[in-house]
């Protein structure tokens, strides 16, 4: 069986579908404590123009960290084990 490897553009279709998900009802799994819940039920800290930090309501672990700079958005998901989109 040979490898069937394409460049990143080939994933554009499914990724576009995934990353346009309804955020409020998506389920997260927290890296910190394992809690799973709706993202809409997490806690959000808007840090003026610095960024937006979405935290787990059980353990305060930052699930999603979002910042905006000159280039665009930077999204850090290392606090989320996975997301389940509805």
């Amino acid at each position: 069986m040979g490898e069937f490897r394409l460049d990143g553009n080939a994933a554009a279709g499914p990724l576009r579908e995934v990353f346009s998900f309804e955020v409020t009802t998506a389920q997260y799994s927290c890296v910190g404590c394992g809690r799973t819940d709706r993202l809409g039920a997490a806690m959000v800290y808007e840090v003026r123009q610095l960024g937006t930090i979405v935290r787990c309501p059980s353990c305060d672990n930052p699930l999603i960290r979002l910042a905006h700079n000159r280039e665009g958005y930077l999204v850090d998901l290392r606090g989320t084990r996975y997301l389940t989109t509805g």
Binding site: Y45, R48, P62
Partner: peptide
């Protein structure tokens, strides 16, 4: 003195 906090 603006307050900026990224968490509780």
């Amino acid at each position: 003195f603006p307050v900026l906090s990224a968490g509780p």
